[in-house]
Computed example of a mutant assay.
Amino acid sequence: MEDFLWELKTERFLNGKLTPEELLAFEQEQINAPELKAYVTLSQELQQALSEDDWLQHKNTSTHYDTVKEWYQNEDVLDFKEKIKQHADEAFVPKKNVFTFRKYWLPIAAAFVALFITIIYQFTAQPTLSQLYADYGTWNDTPSFIVQDENTTNVKAQIELLYKNEKYEACITTAESFLVTSTTDKTNVMIYKGFALVKLNKYSEALTTFKAISESNTIDASKGLWYMALVYLKTEDSENLQKTLKRITAAKTNYQYSKAEELLNVLE
Rank of each mutant, 00 (worst) to 15 (best):
D237R: 11
N165P: 14
T208C: 07
S222W: 00
E176A: 07
V231Y: 00
E215S: 11
V198K: 07
T235P: 09
E166N: 15
F210C: 03
T209L: 00
T253W: 02
T253H: 07
N217G: 12
T208N: 15
L245A: 03
Q242T: 14
T209P: 06
E205Y: 05
T173W: 02
K186L: 02
K202S: 11
M190S: 12
Y168W: 05
T184E: 14
A229K: 06
I219C: 01
K246G: 10
K223Q: 13
Q242F: 01
T173H: 11
L207Q: 13
T208R: 13
T208K: 14
S204E: 15
I191G: 06
T249S: 03
S214E: 05
T244M: 00
F195D: 11
T235G: 05
T218C: 01
T181I: 09
S204N: 15
E239R: 15
Y232G: 11
L225V: 09
W226H: 11
K186I: 04
I172M: 02
M228H: 11
L230Y: 03
T174D: 04
R247Q: 15
N188S: 12
K234M: 03
Y227E: 09
A212F: 01
K223H: 06
N201E: 12
K223W: 02
L245W: 00
S222E: 02
E169I: 13
K186G: 04
V231G: 05
I213A: 00
N201Q: 14
N165H: 13
V180L: 02
K223Y: 05
I219Q: 12
I172Q: 03
L225K: 07
V198L: 02
L225T: 10
F210H: 06
E176W: 02
E236P: 12
E169L: 10
T184F: 06
